[in-house]
Nucleic acid binder design. Structure first.
Length: 110
DNA sequence: CTTCTGACTGGGA
DNA sequence: GTCCCAGCCAGAA
């Protein structure tokens, strides 16, 4: 728990990801803007999810977070990438050529 | 201490 | 469509 203080950006970002409703997807830049009002910290958001343990992954819908292109980021480095698409499709998100239409499934935020 | 890398984004060529 | 560059945060060497 004390680690939160060491991560001024990690925890807020994770908390925001948890707010993403089912059937919707958010981009790293989206989360970055919501928590810090800056899109430039998007990389830190991705890193925050990458640092999630399996335990945290159960509570955090990391699969609803993707890049601005509406595409799963670095799927080759993560076998879970296939799972991510499967989970999203199970929630009603439609993949088109391995790509999601953010204009339709993009999370508007709070 | 410095340097590099990474689940990113935006702009320019 | 591609490629390159600059900026941000966190961790590893």
């Amino acid at each position: 728990m004390n680690k939160q203080q060491q991560r001024p950006f990690f925890e807020p970002a994770i908390s925001m990801v948890r707010r993403i409703p089912s059937g919707k997807v958010a981009t790293y830049g989206q989360i970055s803007i919501l928590v810090s009002n800056s899109v430039q910290k998007a990389r830190a958001v991705g890193y925050a999810l990458a640092a999630l343990s399996e335990e945290e992954a159960q509570e955090v819908p990391w699969w609803r977070v993707m890049n601005k292109q509406g595409r799963i980021s670095n799927p080759r480095a993560r076998p879970r990438g296939a799972l991510q698409q499967q989970l999203l499709e199970d929630e009603g998100v439609i993949f088109e050529e391995g790509q999601v239409d953010l204009d339709e499934f993009g999370w508007e935020g709070v």
